[in-house]
């Protein structure tokens, strides 16, 4: 019984990881620091031996609510309210993006896509497992090992022609 739940959490984590990394890379987070604070985080990541484009990606996640925040908040609201909750979360994430002086497309589109994915997968994986999966996904990028995570993000950015 416990094994089935752990497998569900891991599968939801992989889906969330692919969702927010692909959307954030498509909207050009690794290209340049959007705000001034992201620049100093990127240079710090480069100083410890990582890739600077991965560093800009991490700094942009810290300094404004992007597709990662959209994914987490939309899965929270889908767990609590159903499909309408995801749309409310998208609106609130857009307001938060505008507060941090960002265009705000990445957060809104990330929230809407994860709402659609949860609605399609709801008979198999409930929305509760997506919350834990998103926390697991952000842990592998921001909390586990910064050097290798930034090198991996830099490779993905180079493959999608964003950065370099």
């Amino acid at each position: 019984m416990e094994i089935v739940e752990i497998i569900k959490v891991v599968v939801a984590g992989i889906i969330c990881w692919l969702n927010f990394v692909l959307i954030d890379t498509y909207f050009g987070l690794p290209e340049k620091p959007g705000v001034l604070g992201a620049k100093t985080i990127g240079e710090k990541i480069r100083d410890i031996g990582g890739n600077i484009h991965g560093g800009y990606f991490m700094g942009n996640i810290v300094c404004s609510p992007d597709a990662s925040a959209g994914t987490l908040l939309a899965s929270i609201m889908s767990y609590l309210m159903g499909v309408e909750g995801g749309i409310i979360a998208a609106l609130l994430v857009w307001i938060g993006n505008r507060l941090c002086a960002d265009p705000g497309y990445a957060g809104t589109i990330g929230a809407l896509t994860i709402t659609a994915i949860i609605y399609l997968l709801s008979p198999i994986i409930e929305a509760k497992y997506f919350i834990a999966g998103m926390v697991l996904a952000i842990f592998t990028i921001q909390g586990f090992e910064h050097k290798y995570a930034s090198i991996l993000l830099g490779k993905i950015a180079k493959k999608m022609n964003r950065g370099e």
Binding site: V35, L36, G37, A38, T40, I41, G59, V62, C63, S64, P65, A69, L72, L73, I76, M77, L80, M81, G85, A89, L92, V93, I95, G96, L99, C100
Partner: peptide, 20 residues
């Protein structure tokens, strides 16, 4: 859910100010 969204957006603002 409303509390969680408000808390997350405000903590992001605080991190932005510290990095700046």
């Amino acid at each position: 859910g409303i509390v969680a969204i408000t808390y997350f957006v405000c903590s992001t603002l605080s991190s932005n100010a510290i990095a700046y």
